[in-house]
Amino acid sequence: MTAAQRVITILLVVLGTMTTRFLPFLIFPEGKTPPAFILRLGKVLPYAAIGLLVVYCLKDAAAPPDYGLAEGIAIAAVVLIHRWKHSTLLSIGTGTALYMLLVQIFFS
């Protein structure tokens, strides 16, 4: 990607983000109520989008040398630590450190 293409990509991400933030205020100025199906989609999309993102992160995981084993172990650790301590920072920190250890030492 060239520098110009990078800038365009970043600007489009800014534009996309601002679209999602400003849209409701542009469509529904001063007390106009949105239609029911928009409200419903707005309610369920946040959950579905995170599920999609988890899969997005793992899209290339099933490749050699470990066929996703490192990801599997690290995610299991994140889930266990998070259910145990409920600390976002601890879960992310430990999970990432464990993953780095796995891919650098055991699956390199």
């Binding site: 489009l12 983000t17 999602t20 409701p24």
Partner: peptide
């Protein structure tokens, strides 16, 4: 971006 940030529509 629209998809990942779709939740902002709900926030709005």
């Amino acid at each position: 971006t629209l998809m990942v940030n779709a939740r902002h529509i709900f926030y709005g």
